[in-house]
Simulated scan of single mutants.
Amino acid sequence: MAGLQIQQLNKEDSAEFCSLTYPSQRWLLLNPGQEKVIAVGVRSGQDPVGLALAHARPTSFDELVSLYINPLFDSPAVRNKLLAQIEKECSAVGLETLQFLPVVWEPSIQSLEWLIEHGWTYQGTRQLVCKAPVDNLLAIDWLQRPQLPAGYHCIPWSEVSDSSRQTLKDSQPHWPSLLDPFYLEKDHCDSVSQALLDEKSRIRGWLITHGIDAQILRWTASWVDPQIQSMTRVFPLWRNAAEAQKAGSKHPLATWTVPIGLDRMQRFTLRRIRPHLTALGYATLFSREL
């Protein structure tokens, strides 16, 4: 703790700490509007080196959205103090329960024990989180072999015709709402996202992608119509997306998730995809009574 200061952040200070949280959460520090945001920062001299960020939602659960310390300054003492301070500040503004959804990477599984030791309750694991260089994906032999049936083909999602889009919209939705391409296509990476069309130009599957930062492209959702679904149907989508990412995107890395409960896909990931990953994590859920 020598030379480090831990303090609650005001609006004037918050912008300096943006790089210490996820890009998708930086608006909470830069332009929160009427949202209730609680932020605690760690400084070394004048330099921001740690951040705990909580978001109080009036219509949903209150969440600890980010807890990060620069590894050069991390220690049990700093980590314990930062966690205790954000809990104290959240309690002071009337929050009663916090939820935390951290991704725990395999080399740091012990962080689960640390949270439990500090009063957090483990509620379960929601997803596997995979990360790999796109070059690794393109080198997988079984990803290259499968071919689509006659008449089927993949095209960029941005090139799907209006009539094909309308046909899909008019059909009875038979895909999970979280995978809805019309919702997810906002701000998607149009040079990489793919659609699978059949011989009648009907959309039978898709893979929608989004840039996370300068290095990582998230493969947000891939889905194939259950009527034609098999691993050999989704592989061409993955292959085309990887080739498009290599050719037309500046992102060298891809990341995607596998929901817990999709047992077949989970087993396939751990057995066949894991050797090609540079990182495997677990998206977990914790809660804490304040």
Rank of each mutant, 00 (worst) to 15 (best):
W256A: 02
R204S: 00
H276N: 15
V160T: 07
G261F: 06
S108H: 14
F100W: 15
V65K: 13
P107T: 09
R79F: 07
N31M: 09
Q8I: 08
P252K: 04
Q144L: 13
G124K: 00
L9P: 03
R43F: 11
R57S: 14
I109S: 10
H174T: 05
L143Q: 13
V234G: 00
Y22V: 03
F268Y: 15
Q172C: 12
L64H: 04
A92T: 09
L285V: 12
Q34P: 03
F286S: 03
G211P: 04
W256T: 08
P252L: 04
L95K: 08
L64R: 02
D13Q: 15
P48E: 04
E63N: 06
W105A: 00
V234N: 03
V224I: 13
A244D: 07
T284A: 15
I203M: 10
C130H: 07
T21W: 06
E243N: 09
Q266F: 13
W142M: 04
S108V: 11
V224M: 05
T269L: 08
V160H: 02
F235P: 00
L4R: 04
C90G: 02
L51M: 08
L115E: 05
R274P: 00
L197Q: 01
P226L: 10
T121G: 01
R202T: 04
E106C: 02
T257F: 10
L112H: 07
Y122M: 12
E63L: 08
R202S: 08
Y68T: 07
P23N: 10
L253M: 15
L179K: 09
E117W: 06
E89R: 06
R57E: 13
K88Y: 12
A92E: 13
A247Y: 03
E16L: 09
L138S: 09
T125G: 03
V104C: 06
T257P: 01
